[in-house]
Structure formats: C-alpha cells, structure tokens
Amino acid sequence: MSRAKPVPETVTVHIPFRLVKRGGRKEMHLPDGASSQRKMDNTLVKALARAFRWKRMLESGEFTTIAELAKCEGIAPSYMTRVLRLTLLAPNLVESIVDGQQGPEVTRAVLLEPFPLDWKTHRQLIAGTS
C-alpha cells in the first residue's frame, strides 16, 4: 500500500502562550479558555506556612517581639514583618493559594508588597482580576 502524499519529517504546531515568573520559576500561561491544571506555588505556600507559624509563636508568648523572633530565625525583622502580613489575607484567598487556584498575578513577590486589607479585593485575586 502506498500513500498519495509523503508524510513530512517535521510537523510544526503553534500554541499561543506566555511565560510568567512565579515564585522564582517560569510558568507557562495558556490563553483564556484553554484548559490547564494549575500547580501549587510552593514558594508562596511556604511563605504562608512561615507566616502562620511565626504568628503562632508570637501569640503563644514564646517570643515577645518580632525582633527577638527574627534574630532567632536568622532573618531581618523587616522581612519577617512583610511575611507576617500574609496572615491578614482573606481565608478564602489563603485556601485558593494552597489549592493552586489563585489568579496568575498572585505571587510571593506581589503579596510581600503592601496590599489592601479589604477582603473583597482579595476575592478578585482569586478570580485573577484586578
């Protein structure tokens, strides 16, 4: 049996996407409507875990000041205060981050910057809108 047309040696497939830095890594984002399973942002989850651990240590009286805790942890107090702010995020945003369902612009770098304390605004971050 022979074919009418020869099979090409290479096939070119065009897939529109963009690369976005997330947690120090590059991640591929497909266009709207394309199905993709998001992965958990490990650096962001780790920052959340540290924030809630430090908060618990401060609230328990184990450490009396942020400076004392930061010295024990071997990090700068200013960094610790930025990470501790993550405990002020809306609970549903924290849950979506742990599930890997937050909007693509929600990164550790973005959340370590000052953010509004209004939980309604946080809901927009889950949906991926600003």
Rank of each mutant, 00 (worst) to 15 (best):
M80S: 10
T64N: 12
G61Q: 07
I75Y: 00
G61V: 04
A67D: 15
N42M: 12
A47E: 08
G74W: 03
T65P: 08
E73M: 11
D41C: 05
D41F: 01
A49C: 05
K39H: 13
P77Y: 00
I75G: 00
T64L: 02
M80L: 15
C72M: 09
L44C: 06
T65K: 11
F63G: 02
I66H: 08
I66Q: 15
E73C: 06
K71E: 15
A67Q: 11
A47T: 04
W54L: 01
S60Y: 06
P77R: 02
A47G: 10
M80F: 03
M80H: 00
E73K: 06
E68D: 13
I66L: 06
L48Y: 06
W54R: 07
Q37K: 14
R38M: 11
C72N: 14
L44G: 04
A67F: 01
C72F: 12
A70L: 09
T65V: 05
R56I: 00
A76T: 09
R38L: 10
R38P: 14
E59H: 02
K55M: 08
F63K: 03
F63D: 05
F52I: 04
I75P: 03
Q37L: 12
T64C: 03
S60T: 08
K39I: 11
A49I: 02
T65C: 07
E59V: 02
E68N: 04
W54V: 02
S60Q: 10
E73I: 00
L48C: 05
R50E: 15
A47K: 02
A76P: 00
R56S: 15
L58N: 09
K71F: 06
F52D: 04
M80V: 05
R50F: 13
A70F: 12
T64H: 09
E59F: 00
E68P: 06
L58R: 04
K71W: 03
N42W: 12
R53L: 14
W54P: 00
T64E: 13
Q37Y: 09
E62F: 07
N42Y: 10
Y79S: 10
A51E: 06
M40K: 14
R56H: 10
A51W: 01
A76M: 09
K46V: 07
S78T: 13
I66Y: 04
A49S: 14
K71L: 13
A76C: 11
S60V: 03
A51T: 08
K55R: 15
L69P: 01
V45N: 11
T43F: 12
A70I: 04
T81I: 08
A49Q: 09
R38T: 09
A47F: 07
E62N: 08
S78A: 14
K46M: 11
A47Q: 03
R38C: 07
